[in-house]
Design a protein around this nucleic acid. Structure first.
Lengths: 240, 240
DNA sequence: AAGTAATGTGTCATAAGTACATATTTATTA
DNA sequence: TAATAAATATGTACTTATGACACATTACTT
């Protein structure tokens, strides 16, 4: 490094009034939920850090200076899965001092809902796989805590809002929908009462079609009313 | 700056693998809610930036490298109000690229609930004042958006959880409690139905005492059951 | 002593939630 | 081809929660 270069660097440092404050990196971590084989799943990658050998971690990356939080989340989704038009919601910020072994990293956790079967995922990495949420015990970093937090928020969210449909193909039967609720909430629901409740919410359109790939009496197919369809929409109206 | 010092600085820079990523500052902003004169209020300071002359802003500060998010929030609360044992909850992270005129700052918003009258606030600054939430139209930065977001979350929270009591003195009448709910939710409630609902929740202990400073028939005084008392407790079990 | 204003309680109608049973339709099996 | 199995589809009775509403009581004020 030449004297000239050093001077430039020095100027750069001086410009930053409190270097201390810029000694913290910011990342985004995405909890990507999917639903397959009657199980809620999450997309994880094998950790490449020695400290966490054998453990899995969420998909995340540091935020670039010219992108906002949601742009960064969408970038990660695109880079890792090839998907663009997915449901995304901010869950929580995690900022423990020692949460990252290489230094101070504050992360902002988002969760995303994906229809595994419909979207052809272009998984960017051969150690990137779907894992049943229920089976996950330990993860790298504080990612188990992040996962649990996102799952809790998802549980609250699906009860109130019509977001669960982002995990299903466009057309689905009421049985499939019920099984998905059961997988997310971890409870068994009464079929008759479930149907009553769903019909009261008035979220669905009857497609006048039937299932055709089931080994039993096929059920009617429904889709979400267009007005609730959030697949292609930025969920959060909040980005300041 | 000597050659030696330059070399040290250079080493420091080299150690940071991607300087770009450390060009973002992180702050915490606190929406400090209080309740007085039958109004929900928020503690604001006059902005000292020229861009926002005449506008008010939330209390916030950059996070230090050795403190986690909640520690930073509590530090701000302590520095600004002298209070320590208050309810605090994380609301949302805001990371818009241009949200701060002096550079890239991502902020994590917390809201806090304070009993204005009981705690003797040591307001650190003479331009620090309580403002009725309903009257606030414009604020500095994106702080109006942050305030609105926190208010929404508070509204959801008080319906489900016994947190509203952090805004009241230890002993209170059902009328005071109802008025507080009305102020937060922005609705009028039926007195008889309200009392029924509260009694079902079984949050309160009858103190067998009466109001004594009211110009009408005094009501019974209640307090929150100890098991729900969160005043001295870190709310968030989540800090990774 | 009468008036005023708020406290404190109760009822009824309606809506929502819960437990539970039977008929129907399709695929499979004998 | 007929019986069987398994899932769909729907309805009813009971309980609980919600919302609208009325009246007696108590303490302060005039």
């Amino acid at each position: 490094m030449t004297e000239k270069e050093l001077q430039l660097k020095t100027a750069e440092i001086e410009k930053i009034s409190h270097l201390d404050y810029f000694n913290i990196a910011i990342s985004v971590d995405c909890v990507i939920f999917g639903y397959d084989e009657k199980e809620l799943k999450v997309l994880l990658i094998k950790s490449d850090l020695e400290e966490f050998a054998g453990l899995h971690s969420l998909l995340g990356d540091l935020i670039k200076t010219d992108e906002d939080l949601e742009t960064a989340s969408y970038r990660i989704l695109r880079e890792r899965t090839g998907l663009d038009d997915v449901y995304l919601a901010q869950a929580h910020a995690f900022g423990g001092i020692d949460r990252h072994p290489s230094g101070r990293v504050i992360t902002i956790a988002y969760y995303s809902l994906i229809d595994i079967k419909h979207h052809k995922l272009q998984l960017s990495h051969n150690e990137l796989n779907w894992h049943p949420v229920k089976a996950i015990k330990k993860m790298a970093f504080d990612h188990k805590l992040i996962l649990d937090t996102c799952l809790e928020q998802l549980q609250e969210q699906v009860i109130e809002q019509p977001v669960i449909f982002n995990l299903l193909p466009e057309k689905f039967s009421l049985r499939e929908l019920q099984e998905l609720y059961e997988a997310i909430l971890g409870v068994e629901l009464d079929r008759r009462n479930f149907r009553k409740k769903i019909s009261i919410k008035d979220w669905l359109v009857d497609m006048d079609e039937m299932e055709n790939d089931v080994p039993h009496r096929p059920g009617r197919l429904y889709k979400l009313k267009g007005e609730y369809n959030r697949r292609n929409r930025l969920v959060s109206k909040l980005h300041g």
